[in-house]
Simulated assay, not measured.
Amino acid sequence: MGETDAGEGERAAHVPVMLERIAEVLRPALEVPGAVVVDGTLGLGGHAEALLRAHPALRLVGIDRDTTALDRSRARLAPYADRVHFAHAEYDAVPGVLDGLDIPEVQGVLLDLGVSSPQLDEAGRGFAYSYDAPLDMRMDRTQALTAAEVVNAYPAADLARILRDYGEERFAGRIAQAIVRERARTAIDSTRRLAELVREAIPAATRRTGGNPAKRTFQALRIEVNGELSILERALPAAIDRLAVGGRIAVLSYHSLEDRMAKRALTALATDTTPPDLPVPLPDRQPELRLLTRGGEVPGDQESERNPRAASARLRAAERTRRR
């Protein structure tokens, strides 16, 4: 995930976001003999390729829910095929995937969240408001739920909640009511029509600033269709639990909801929970993680200028210091 278009041409290069920093954060853990790293959101395999190239003995477990992404990453990582295991799954399935490979613990975990450039750039996937396409937005095209079903079948109150909670949309109620009125007349089945509806529902003064007014609605629908936040909520503790002592996790997020969840999960385990009235720290209440980043690290100005989709990225990382 999170691989961004670096330029124009017949096929623009896809550049992994914050590649050098992620490689630096994970490096000490991946230099351990017999190290295994899980890339829970393999995408096009850009981060994975760099890690495999940098660590000649490293084994990698690559997980993705998008079968197209898996096919592309298999081709990209073909030179390292004897060190890579691929799995078609959501990234909260890390424990089951590792159990199936008889791998009890790993030295590294990378979760690069959000939607990848191929998903955005392929018009037929229905992720982007810049193309006219069927309302789909499924990362895993084997699942049943699509954006069209959400838009055309969810009650107005649920639509408003999704837009407000997942898209942080101020005009969630107005947009939801506009959708309900329109679908009573005819089904809303294209990205262009939905984008037009959103634009018409938002006050003119607001439309003049802040980019495309449909951005937040499309983000919210994508999160709902793919269950992104509920999966992340399950995936973070599951992935951390499989880290060996000295193992490291890196989480790259692209909007505030994801970043807050990553912050909470990592900070909670990096805190001494000894009751404050006790004179000495309790061994079983000592932190399980050590934070490796100061807050959410952001890409440098040059990377953000070169890859606009990287601009919103936030990186958080931690190292396991002990087991319960």
Rank of each mutant, 00 (worst) to 15 (best):
I240R: 04
R320P: 04
D39C: 05
A50G: 01
R216M: 14
R294C: 12
R306A: 15
D64R: 13
L44H: 10
T321G: 15
R306S: 13
A128R: 04
L101I: 05
P213S: 13
T191K: 11
A184Y: 00
T41Y: 03
I175Q: 13
P118M: 03
G9P: 03
P79Y: 00
R208F: 11
E224S: 11
T186V: 14
A153N: 07
L197N: 13
L110E: 06
R309G: 13
Q219N: 05
L163F: 15
R59Q: 11
G62K: 07
S117W: 14
I22D: 11
R185I: 09
L98C: 03
S312T: 09
Y80F: 15
P33V: 07
G34I: 11
L243W: 10
P287T: 13
S190T: 15
L282R: 15
V180D: 05
M261Q: 01
N212G: 03
G43V: 07
A87K: 05
T191E: 05
A311N: 09
A81C: 02
L221C: 02
L243S: 10
Y154I: 05
Y154F: 15
E122W: 02
H47A: 13
R76D: 01
L19S: 07
E224P: 01
A160S: 14
A6N: 04
P287D: 14
V15K: 08
A35M: 04
L289M: 06
S73Y: 12
H47T: 08
A220W: 08
V251P: 12
R285T: 13
A204D: 07
E20M: 12
Y80K: 02
A12E: 10
E303P: 05
E319G: 12
A187V: 06
P118E: 08
A133V: 06
A160P: 10
S130W: 08
I188V: 12
A13K: 09
P275G: 13
V180A: 05
T273D: 09
G124M: 03
A244E: 14
R161T: 14
I223Y: 08
A54W: 06
P287R: 11
E90G: 06
A204M: 07
R83E: 01
E297L: 09
G210E: 10
L278T: 12
R72M: 13
G246D: 13
A220S: 06
V25N: 11
R290S: 15
E122N: 09
A239E: 04
D92A: 05
L26V: 08
A317Q: 07
L52H: 11
D102N: 10
P104L: 00
R141D: 07
A48L: 10
R11G: 11
L229G: 00
Q107N: 15
R53I: 08
A238S: 03
E149M: 15
L44V: 14
G227Q: 01
V25G: 12
T186N: 11
R216D: 12
A89L: 02
V84Q: 01
D277V: 13
P79C: 01
A48D: 12
R222E: 01
G126P: 10
D140L: 01
I103W: 06
R216Y: 08
T274L: 02
Y131Q: 12
D241N: 14
N226A: 00
T146V: 06
E20H: 15
F218Y: 11
A89D: 03
L292C: 14
D241S: 11
T273P: 09
P299F: 05
T293K: 09
T191I: 01
R242G: 01
E24I: 05
T217P: 03
D71A: 15
A156G: 00
I249A: 13
P281R: 14
E224R: 08
